[in-house]
Nucleic acid binder design. Sequence first.
DNA 1: GATTTTGCGATACAGGGTGTCTATACGCAA
DNA 2: TTGCGTATAGACACCCTGTATCGCAAAATC
Lengths: 197, 197
Amino acid sequence: MWNTTVEEHRRTVHTAILDSTAALIAEHGLAVTMSQIAQHTGIGRATLYKYFKDVEAIVLAWHERQVSDHLCQLNAAIAECTDPAERLRTALSAYAGLSSAGHSTPHTGVEGTSAVQTALALHQAPHLHHAQRHVHDLLTEVITVAADAGMARTDVPPAELASYCLHALTAAAASPSPAARDRLVDVTLTGLLPPAG
Amino acid sequence: MWNTTVEEHRRTVHTAILDSTAALIAEHGLAVTMSQIAQHTGIGRATLYKYFKDVEAIVLAWHERQVSDHLCQLNAAIAECTDPAERLRTALSAYAGLSSAGHSTPHTGVEGTSAVQTALALHQAPHLHHAQRHVHDLLTEVITVAADAGMARTDVPPAELASYCLHALTAAAASPSPAARDRLVDVTLTGLLPPAG
DNA sequence: GATTTTGCGATACAGGGTGTCTATACGCAA
DNA sequence: TTGCGTATAGACACCCTGTATCGCAAAATC
């Protein structure tokens, strides 16, 4: 496992731990032990404690990495869009796809993140995790731009609208059908429209 | 603790276990042990195993009871309404209030159920729990009636709309402000309207 | 190339949670 | 009152945890 330098080795082990944890969670659920993670990663159990304090820290780090990836994909998806309305729809559609991504590819060990996210939220309810907050901020910005262009309602704070979207789109995890996902995005998008009359 | 008959005693202990578990979860999060539950309930740890197989079974039973109560409150709330549109708004508003109920009254030990619900969903993803499905069915029926009356869109299956509502309204847990909750209900309700044009 | 530094694996230990077995005490029916 | 079913608590072995320690290998430095 020793590649070149020390720091790179630590980075390799770090990601290997996160990958192993993801695979174990996908197989056995949230009831993962430090022993299982160490054994699956191929390192000593005591060594694992040099990298992470406990299981929760590992799961949290893994979730953080997942959401960071989602954030990058979201940024990439809306980068090409110039029209505020299209940017908004693209963002929602991309997030809906990410929400249901885990269920379609269980082999990769990428479970749905929403369950873990809310499970962890019990302990750290007050402040959302960094990456998750970044996603919220990104969507808030997109909605604000759309609202300035008259494409979204202004009687509700954009931050609340973003929270509404993020929660509503998690329903995409229940139905992996792409058509259903499109319908969900459409319905969610309708909720953002200014009240008629 | 022995009241009258045996069966009633078992029922008393059963509810006492669920109450203790709720209190412990509200205080320590999901990391609850059988030992803690037994000690807090005032019974032997081995006795606890006669009532429930493991912690997950207890949490699941508690969640089932919570959702059942929610279902009753929903039914009571919409019972007085005759107009389909008002029935729909009342149902959504009531559910939004229930979603954020736990955070305002931590003393009662009634934590927010959404986090536990999705955390448990990791293990039993395919089939929702009985009571939760009942809530979904109830909302589906309300939406169907509203759609028949022309108050809701018909291009999306009512079941999907119900799922959309249930997920979107869980955003109410983030902001305990009643005004924000009303805005959320309004936005969610807008998503149910038929597409303009 | 030798020395120092650092990371790593293995082992051992105490503390606590888990699951099960068994003996005791009590309600209940005959 | 006697026997049966049942609830209950104590006890046992097992596993996980968190930490401390030791020896080894490899990197970093001189």
